[in-house]
Write a protein that binds this DNA or RNA. Structure first.
Lengths: 208, 208
DNA sequence: AGCGTTCACTGAACGATGTTCATAAACTAA
DNA sequence: TTAGTTTATGAACATCGTTCAGTGAACGCT
């Protein structure tokens, strides 16, 4: 499996430069917001001339795309940790909480992934691996519920996962752009909506 | 009630100019997207010099804000028409369909209102009249349901309206940025989610 | 070792952006 | 008519993404 033992110091340094640029870009986005992600700003941060960035990235959008990919992997990581919850019902709550927490704690990253035009289009559509994996975590929980016979007959796990994502994204993004409107904190709102949704979807059982 | 019979041709022309500018701006956003809304582009459209725009508006953002306000009034208009449905349950469906249709047919307007940073913050928070009125339409439907005793005990109409808005915004905005992900058309997805949500919130009755 | 080639990088520039300012024309009020 | 306010302009400034002709330094080869 050794792809290349000594990766040629040339390429090594090239990849280092790429990494440094991305790291600087990430720092800027986190500290000053996505709007501050400027080629000249990045260049100053890494000690390059603005033109040098184009030797490592095609455009500013390419850097943003890469950053978005990393953000998506980060989100996937959080969801994966939440997905360790064994009970599928509690897992759904944990996944939702993790998702909303990510959006709250790294709003600029979230905006970059899901709210910037012309980029997120490919984030979940299959092209992005982490995005698909993240979605699979949600779908898995519903699939387990279905397999355990705890779902109403007509309920489709994939559709439910999509619905859950829609709900989570609705909370996360509305909170970001219309925080005054969403006076309720995210968590209680999420809990109550999840309650209603699951209440409508779960098979009713006399308490066993 | 006559505020001012002859509004002084001075002011008349000034307001005309404002209207012309906004109209041109609206045309640009609709035809070429929000990103194309440039001061120079607007100026060219209305036949002014770029600097002249600053005699009528404080900044580009002010124009965008005004446009967003108009968009919100337009959305409110659609919702108001849908709100004529008498049965509150059917009305909720109609409101949802109208909302999603607005976002689909005028995506750039929707993005301007709800997805552009630093603007939508005040769209629903009470400052904007149309926004509050639009929300009241949703809340009204749930309040009627509650008054008719068709809601579960713990259900709070205002919270439910917020939840519905979250859901609608989730569908509308995810469709815009991750259309590949939302392979399902908006309407069936909305219908099924609304079904589950209401199913979990409505008081169960033996069919009367 | 020396030579030629490739590579990483820079400085200056281009077109476009939002915005400001001095200036001129046009309209209003006396 | 004259004085003054309003409206519009053209040129300019700073900043943006991006391109391109050069400049060394590092690399591969003989």
């Amino acid at each position: 499996m050794s792809d290349n033992e000594s990766p040629s110091p040339r390429l090594r340094r090239k990849e280092d430069a790429r990494a440094h640029i991305l790291q600087a870009a990430r720092r800027i986005v986190l500290d000053e917001g996505f709007a501050a992600l400027t080629m000249r700003r990045i260049a100053a941060e890494v000690g390059y001339s603005p033109a040098a960035l184009y030797l490592h990235f095609e455009s500013r959008e390419a850097i943003a795309r890469e950053l978005g990919g990393a953000g998506m992997r980060s989100l996937h990581g959080r969801l994966a940790r939440a997905a360790e919850t064994v009970d599928p019902l509690a897992r759904i709550s944990a996944l939702g909480a993790a998702y909303v927490a990510f959006a709250r704690e790294e709003p600029e990253t979230y905006r970059l992934i899901f709210m910037e035009p012309g980029f997120a289009a490919s984030a979940l559509g299959g092209e992005d691996e982490a995005g698909a994996a993240a979605f699979a975590l949600l779908a898995g929980a519903f699939a387990e519920l279905a397999a355990a016979g705890r779902l109403r007959a007509a309920a489709d796990p994939a559709a439910l996962a999509t619905g859950l994502w829609v709900l989570l994204h609705g909370i996360a993004s509305l909170k970001m752009t219309c925080s005054a409107f969403l006076a309720t904190p995210e968590e209680p709102l999420l809990a109550s909506m999840l309650d209603s949704l699951l209440n409508g979807v779960l098979r009713r059982v006399d308490q066993p």
